[in-house]
Design a binder for these strands. Structure first.
Lengths: 362, 362
DNA sequence: AACGATATCTAAATCGTTTTAGTGATTAAT
DNA sequence: ATTAATCACTAAAACGATTTAGATATCGTT
């Protein structure tokens, strides 16, 4: 302990109770082999001294800490707290404690934290901050350390268990919705291409465009970093293009960037959805506010977190080495709100496009 | 390690390098007393084996882990992630890693986590989920374990270091602002009274009312839990009072509840601020959105988190036992936005009240 | 050549638990 | 009464590092 009074140890208890440390250990762990009388005496003394077993020492000897780490990209992106909440609840129910660590999507920091995990005494880790081609993650998984990736995944990582959303499908749905509302010039604010979500949500959009035979100029694809300010900047740039090059709709690959774009449009006195339609991704709490009401793609956050937590515990507690990798891809759902203008138009304008004319996803 | 390949230990390295474990330890910690040749050889072998010191073992012997815990109430209340972000940055800069643990404001869980902290190998803890009269917190502080409370405090805890906002002043400012805009029937949505913030933000409002000679009926004070839904419910109830008993303004003791109220008013087709004014507390990111624009009280979150982190490290690193308790109370700031109607009216209606007529805060 | 000083390295104790193997004592079975 | 089985307990070895005190070897000085 850093300073202050020395903590009570098992030896203090054993001395006072006139038994060996082993006996105290048995008592504290509810193990058989101790007489009722001794057990009671030890418990009473432990209570009186306010003895709590040192979890670091315990963790050293039996390699279990009941501590799980969750790596998130940032607490400032509300998706991660929302995800963490589900994980937390599932873990608490099983007697584990969750530690949330943020890596800010910095590759170095991410690698450092991943490398440290194994040696920090965590029993396992849930990674939602996953980037691509992470050597440390590969090593961690290969070493047999319990890892479950949630939301994002690292394609390079062979044995990695994950639960993700079908981002391609989500991106497709968002874009197709805009297309069916009659939009032909759709601006895309894509996410960081070092994340699987960033890649897939863009890819889905491009598939949709291709299926509907829509060309998209480079000026209408901008890369953001999943934070609000980058969405703001991207929207500003696109709206400052010459009149005829401007988008009539924006698809932002996450809600924070959509909100940034929303702010930019507001500042420019562009009406949403009358002048420009807008759709985001993630269905974070803000988008549902009545005064915001941004259309978006929803994912089952609570379920995702819960399943990841349960899978991780399963790995930890049935430590077979031959385990099958567990992979799950959840279905996205389109949430139609005010900003895409559906209510305005009442129906899709392009229903005349025959289904055979386009590739049905996937 | 739970399963999989055995991790590389200091012994593996020492064996391969033909030195004792002690020497390897010296090398890994950049200590003198090892020849350049040996040092190089050890480093090379450590690198080849991908050896990383086991932090649990290290922590056991020298009582340092470079791990800090932060107890927050919930990730779903955006104030906490925003606070944690500041703490995280300050800690990272000094080589520490932050673990965020949420307690959901449940007294039992809170106590359990606090009690466990000391034995989990954390070097210190930042508590922002603080409730009142927590025996475990008192014991922890008394034991000399490094603790800094931020945002909230436990009045019963004598030696507790804290950095908080002047909640009474903030509550006073919010309410006074509404009063000066001419409001006489102000509904208050207070927070949980087991938190210092809940208590103070209400107290400040009552002081302001008293100073301006305003009576407030019981029906216009409702208790929420700092979450959105409780603000929604409280606003709904108040707006369903008979016409003449309804509030003309609402003061919610945090932004989430203000947003809930905002939603309720929207649903009831009550115009904000024309029919009912609204002010929140915390200046969380959502309130600043153009389409939301809720007036609120701002606190210096980043600075608060940073200072708490730095103070904690100071305690940890200069382990004097005679340390003075460190207490800081920061100044709130009124953020005037759309929902309180200031822009509408352009000036305070009650400027005729002479300053001497009321008690100037504090 | 002898001495002390310095540099390099190691053996062993330590941190606070858990666990294994084994010791006595008591009880049960024949 | 003897042997076997059971019970209550303990000594000592882990776990994987750090640290202290001491052992060797090397060097310089006179």
């Amino acid at each position: 302990m850093t300073s202050g009074k020395r903590a009570v140890t098992i030896k203090d208890v054993s001395r006072l109770a006139n038994v060996s440390p082993a006996t105290v250990s048995f008592v504290m762990n509810n193990r058989p082999g101790v007489s009722a009388k001794t057990r009671a005496r030890v418990l009473q003394i432990a209570e009186a001294l306010d003895y709590k077993p040192n979890l670091v020492a315990r963790s050293l000897v039996n390699g279990r800490s009941k501590l799980i780490a969750m790596l998130i990209s940032s607490t400032r992106n509300p998706l991660f707290p929302e995800l963490a909440d589900g994980v937390d609840q599932a873990l608490k129910a099983k007697g584990y404690t969750l530690s949330i660590i943020s890596t800010n999507d910095e590759e170095q920091l991410e690698s450092r934290e991943i490398a440290a995990l194994r040696y920090r005494g965590f029993d396992g880790v849930i990674i939602s901050s996953t980037l691509q081609n992470n050597r440390e993650l590969n090593k961690l998984v290969e070493s047999g350390f319990p890892v479950v990736s949630v939301l994002r995944r690292d394609y390079s990582c062979k044995g990695l268990d994950y639960i993700v959303l079908d981002g391609i499908k989500g991106g497709y749905m968002a874009t197709e919705h805009l297309i069916r509302l009659g939009h032909r010039r759709i601006g895309i604010i894509k996410g960081p291409q070092k994340t699987s979500t960033g890649l897939e949500r863009l890819k889905g959009a491009l598939y949709a465009m291709a299926d509907y035979g829509i060309q998209i100029p480079d000026t209408l694809i901008r890369e953001g970093d999943f934070f609000k300010s980058s969405g703001y900047a991207a929207a500003m740039e696109m709206m400052r293009l010459p009149q005829e090059e401007r988008p009539s709709a924006l698809y932002a690959c996450n809600d924070d960037m959509a909100i940034g774009a929303f702010e930019a449009l507001w500042e420019l006195n562009v009406r949403v959805p009358e002048d420009v339609a807008l759709i985001g991704f993630n269905n974070t709490a803000v988008t549902a506010l009545k005064s915001v009401s941004i259309s978006t793609i929803s994912l089952q956050k609570a379920s995702m977190g819960k399943q990841a937590a349960n899978r991780l515990i399963e790995i930890i507690e049935n430590k077979k080495d031959d385990r099958k990798t567990f992979r799950l891809m959840l279905e996205p759902e389109l949430i139609v709100r005010r900003t895409c203008g559906f209510a305005l138009k009442g129906k899709y304008l392009v229903d005349k496009v025959k289904d055979e004319d386009r590739r049905i996803f996937p």
